[in-house]
Design a protein around this nucleic acid. Structure first.
Length: 412
DNA sequence: TATCCACTGCGTTTACTGGC
DNA sequence: GCCAGTAAACGCAGTGGATA
């Protein structure tokens, strides 16, 4: 086989660039620049050239998104900067307390503003780029150590394999949320129904499960998407944007999809207005969102405030109220844990809440049982805290039968 | 007051086991 | 070898008790 000449090398580079730009326009901007037939023709030309000259295949080539072989298992990867979750607030009062808390830690209180972003319901990912090329994708895990799922992350078209910038930093870490768009979730479930497979319960869990697939081809077929929201440039801190707003804009320039529904807010009143407005509008979005993320815009101020053991002090999630559903308590059982801890549990008539079937909820302890005054046969209101954890909110005593008995815990 | 740890339920995937 | 069933692990968020 003849060695590739400079014309071939140039053509390869040109094809990659054209396909990368077309992919960015299609998957990130949602504004296609090439007809499908033209994209397919260019893609096949690239495939043919790479087959002829395999030594010229690069890891950022659009042909390299889907690996040939399934992984045998995932390996653990320690985050260089912990990937924290956020503290939650459920009302204006809790938000005001959070603001008071961070303001107590700085003296004098500097001028500040907030950036509000929609909280996407998916799975957090940390992406590493070296010299502008994607090299690693890791899940949140316990915040310190996650699972390295690079081959799966490569299949997500909204994640560029090469940063769209000249002179990229030696190392860049992008954090964001991988999620399953609602239309994709519906399409997958239609296919599963046709194949006589059980449907997925909700987009969030389907996305989390998809990312843990060993075979990237399966991940590729499920068309996950991604919104970037955090940028770290550890190798060149002087290039780190001074504000969260500028970081979002820089990530967009780098080729990432950044949620367009963000807003500057000067104070908590403006935050509340943004939160209320999106409570209605979010139902029309093509993806799930369960709240609003509020961040201090100034990165130096963020660095000054730092982190608690669990959360950043400079950001908080303001959550929308969970869906509340009535059901009936069939039984109250008592579980004994590994350590001997005794936990009462409400067993209820199965009911759909926030996309899953719920029939059990912890009652935590005897004080909580007494406080709720929950009895077998009662109609109760349940919800899923954080869209995940089933919780008995209150009893409806007006619907109680006259012959119910007070429940008392016995620990034999 | 802040933090750590154990424990909770559900959905999902993977690994394993047993039966045919 | 294939299939069905089950266990284990993970991710997620919240509570409560213990401890610093």
């Amino acid at each position: 086989m003849p060695a590739p000449d400079s014309t071939t090398r140039q053509r390869l580079q040109q094809l990659r660039q054209q396909l990368q730009q077309a992919g960015y326009a299609y998957y990130v901007l949602d504004a296609p620049t090439l007809p499908d037939s033209v994209y397919d023709k260019l893609y096949r030309e690239l495939q043919d050239l790479e087959a002829e000259y395999p030594e010229l295949v690069t890891p950022d080539s659009p042909t390299q998104r889907v690996g040939d072989r399934p992984a045998e298992q995932f390996t653990s990867w320690r985050h260089t900067i912990p990937l924290y979750s956020l503290e939650n607030a459920f009302n204006a009062e809790e938000l005001a307390k959070w603001e008071e808390r961070w303001q107590r830690l700085v003296d004098p209180i500097p001028e500040f503003d907030y950036v509000c972003e929609l909280k996407i319901d998916g799975s957090a990912l940390a992406l590493t780029y070296e010299e502008g090329v994607f090299v690693r994708g890791v899940t949140r895990g316990d915040g310190t150590t996650g699972e390295e799922i690079t081959p799966n992350v490569r299949t997500i078209r909204a994640i560029p394999l090469r940063l769209a910038m000249d002179n990229p930093p030696a190392q860049v870490e992008i954090r964001g949320e991988a999620f399953l768009p609602i239309a994709e979730f519906d399409r997958i479930n239609q296919e599963r129904a046709a194949a006589d497979e059980p449907p997925f319960a909700n987009p969030r869990n389907a996305a989390a499960g998809t990312l843990r697939q060993l075979d990237p081809k399966v991940v590729d077929r499920r068309r996950l998407s991604f919104f970037a929201y955090t940028l770290h440039i550890p190798s060149e801190p002087e290039r780190q944007p001074a504000t969260q707003w500028a970081a979002l804009e820089l990530m967009q320039q780098m080729g990432f999809q950044v949620n367009p529904n963000r807003q500057h807010c000067a104070n908590l009143a403006e935050v509340d207005a943004y939160f209320q407005a999106w409570d209605t509008q979010r139902k029309a979005l093509p993806y799930l969102t369960d709240g609003v993320v509020l961040k201090l815009n100034s990165v130096p101020l963020q660095q000054q405030l730092g982190f608690t053991q669990k959360f950043p002090r400079w950001a908080i999630a303001l959550k929308y109220p969970a869906e509340e559903v009535p059901t009936q308590v069939r039984e109250i059982s008592v579980n004994v844990g590994r350590t001997g801890a005794v936990t009462p549990m409400a067993i209820m008539a199965p009911v759909q809440v926030a996309g899953t079937t719920v029939q059990r909820a912890t009652l935590h302890n005897s004080d909580r049982v007494q406080e709720l005054d929950v009895r077998v046969g009662d109609t109760v209101i349940i919800r899923k805290a954080g869209e995940i954890i089933p919780e008995v909110v209150r009893v409806l005593p007006e619907l109680r039968s006259p012959n119910t008995e007070l429940f008392t815990m016995t620990t034999a």
